[in-house]
């Protein structure tokens, strides 16, 4: 009974995922996070608390950092989503922010890392020259249980500096 209900209940949606159009069917109750991970195989979006507390599920929704566990996939109909899989310039390459995270040891277990990096991308697209205070504020919604945050802040500052040096601030937007 419940199975039939679910099947009938499915809705067809179209999303722009990391630059390519995807048409999928989801139940209304599927969060954007579960849709990314389970339906689309983009497991770089991490499921931490699944109720809006940890920030591990952060993705870019039309360019803005949001918690993908706090919206249903059907609500994203027609929108552009960028996950960590979509920030690299090409296969085997890293975005300047990812590079900086490697260099400053901005990650340990890596669980918080995709969300931290996407949050940093959103910050730098908006503000190419953030103060330390602004960086701390930007990542304040993302919990990291390993690094103590110092190297993450350092990584974002380093990425900002490099992106400014490259004089191509638009690169900050994946």
């Amino acid at each position: 009974m419940r199975e039939t209900l679910r099947k009938e209940n499915r809705m067809r949606i179209e999303l722009d995922i990391n630059g390519s159009k995807r048409e999928i069917e989801v139940e209304p109750r599927t969060t954007l996070l579960d849709c990314l991970r389970d339906t689309l195989g983009l497991t770089g979006a991490h499921a931490g608390c699944e109720h809006g507390v940890c920030g591990a599920c952060t993705v870019l929704f039309d360019g803005v950092a949001v918690r993908s566990c706090l919206m249903f996939a059907v609500q994203a109909q027609g929108s552009a989503i960028t996950t960590i899989e979509g920030v690299t310039p090409g296969p085997g390459e890293l975005s300047p922010v990812q590079d900086a995270f490697c260099e400053t040891h901005g990650m340990q277990c890596g669980f918080c890392t995709p969300a931290m990096i996407l949050t940093a991308h959103a910050l730098l697209a908006d503000n190419p020259n953030p103060t330390r205070e602004q960086i701390v504020e930007a990542i304040s919604g993302n919990i990291c249980r390993c690094t103590g945050y110092a190297q993450i802040v350092e990584a974002i500052a380093l990425a900002a500096e490099r992106l400014r040096g490259a004089n191509r601030p638009k690169d900050a937007r994946p």
């Binding site: 920030g55 950092a65 919206m71 304040s140």
Partner: peptide, 9 residues
């Protein structure tokens, strides 16, 4: 209110 990512929605 909350964090930047929750104020975004």
């Amino acid at each position: 209110i909350g964090h930047a990512a929750t104020r975004a929605r």
